[in-house]
Computed example of a mutant assay.
Amino acid sequence: MLQINFKKLNLFFIVLLFSLNCFGQQSDTLKVLFVGNSYTYYWNLPQMVSALAKGGDTVIKARKSTLGGATLMQHWEGERGLETKNTISEGEWDVVVLQNHSKSTIANPEGFMDYGKKFIGLVKETGARPLLYMTWARAYNPLMQKTVSTGYRSLAETTGVDVAKVGEVWEQARLLRPDLELFDSDGSHPSPLGTYLTACVFYKILTGKASKGLSGRLSGIDQDGETLFLSGSSDGDAEFIHQLVDKMIVEKMVWE
C-alpha cells in the first residue's frame, strides 16, 4: 500500500512555490545595458529610465558602458579601456541599447554600418534584443537630422532590429516648442530636460506603456542610501513631452 510522507510533500510544495515566486520576480525585471558615450551618460539617462519605470510600476534595471566621445568601433576594439563586449556577453541582458558617436553617420557612414552590425550580431548571440539609439542634430544645424535618421533607419532595416527615434522626437519638440531648453550650453549634449525627453522615449518603447501621467520630478537612491535628484521638469513641460512621445512613439518591443 502506497504511503505518503506528508511532511516531505509539504516541503516539496513550499520549495516549488518559492522557486516559482523567484522566477516571477526575475521575469518582471527588465535588464537593460546602455552602450554609448556622453549622449548616454549625461544627466544619468539609464537611471532616469529606471526611475520613470518605477513610477509606472515597472522594474527596469539599467546599467551602462560608456565613455566620452566613444564610437562603437572603439567599444568593439576595446580601446581606451572599454570592456563593452565582455559586459554584453556576461551580463544576461534583456535589451542592449546601442548609441554611436553623434556624427558617426556623417563622418564615417561605412564604419557606422560595419560596427553597428558587429554589435547587433553579438547582442543577438547572447539572446538579448538590440535597440538602436538614434541621436539628434546639433543645435546649430537641425539639417543634420536627416542624415542621422537615414543612417539609423538603414541599419535597423538591414539587421531587422528596433530603433528608438530619439532624434526625430527632439526635432519635433524643437519645432513645436523652441522655448524648451533641450541642449546643454555647448549646443550638443542634452540638458536635464533633454535627457528627460530621451528617457521618456525609452520608457515608452521598453514598457509599451504611455508616458502620460508620469512625474517630471525624478529621484533615485545611491549606494549609501542618499537621495539623488535626477529631474526637476515643470508640470507643463513634462505634460508636453509625454503627449509628444506618446503620439510619435507607437512601436513597442514585445517580450517573449
Results as ranks from 00 to 15, higher is better:
Asn100Arg: 04
Gly121His: 09
Leu131Ala: 13
Ser102Thr: 11
Leu98Pro: 08
Glu92Asn: 15
Pro109Phe: 01
Met113Ala: 12
His101Arg: 13
Gly127Ile: 10
Val97Asn: 07
Asp94Gly: 15
Asn100Phe: 01
Glu92Tyr: 15
Ala137Asn: 13
Gln99His: 09
Leu98Met: 07
Asn100Thr: 14
Ser104Trp: 01
Lys117His: 08
Gly116His: 02
Glu110Thr: 08
Ile106Ala: 04
Thr135Phe: 11
Leu132Met: 12
Tyr115Phe: 13
His101Met: 11
Leu98Lys: 09
Val95Arg: 02
Glu125Asp: 14
Lys103Trp: 06
Leu132Trp: 12
Glu92Trp: 04
Leu132Gln: 14
Met134Asn: 14
Leu122Glu: 06
Gly121Pro: 01
Trp93Gly: 14
Ser104Pro: 07
Asp114Ala: 13
Leu98Arg: 07
Thr126Tyr: 08
Val97His: 08
Phe119Pro: 07
Leu122Cys: 03
Met134Cys: 15
Met134Gln: 15
Lys103Thr: 11
Val96Phe: 04
Gln99Thr: 13
Pro109Val: 05
Tyr115His: 03
Gly127Lys: 03
Ala128Lys: 07
Lys124Ile: 14
Leu122Asp: 01
Val123Lys: 06
Gly116Tyr: 00
Thr105Arg: 01
Gln99Trp: 01
Met134Thr: 05
Met113Thr: 11
Glu92Asp: 15
Ala128Asn: 07
Tyr133Leu: 05
Trp136Phe: 08
Lys117Ile: 08
Arg129Leu: 14
Tyr133Lys: 02
Tyr115Pro: 08
Val96Asn: 06
Ile106Ser: 03
Gly116Gln: 00
Leu131Arg: 05
Leu122Ile: 04
Gln99Cys: 09
Glu125Ala: 14
Leu98His: 06
Gly127Ala: 12
Val97Thr: 09
Ala107Val: 11
Thr126Ala: 06
Met113His: 05
Arg129Cys: 06
Trp136Ala: 05
Met134Ala: 15
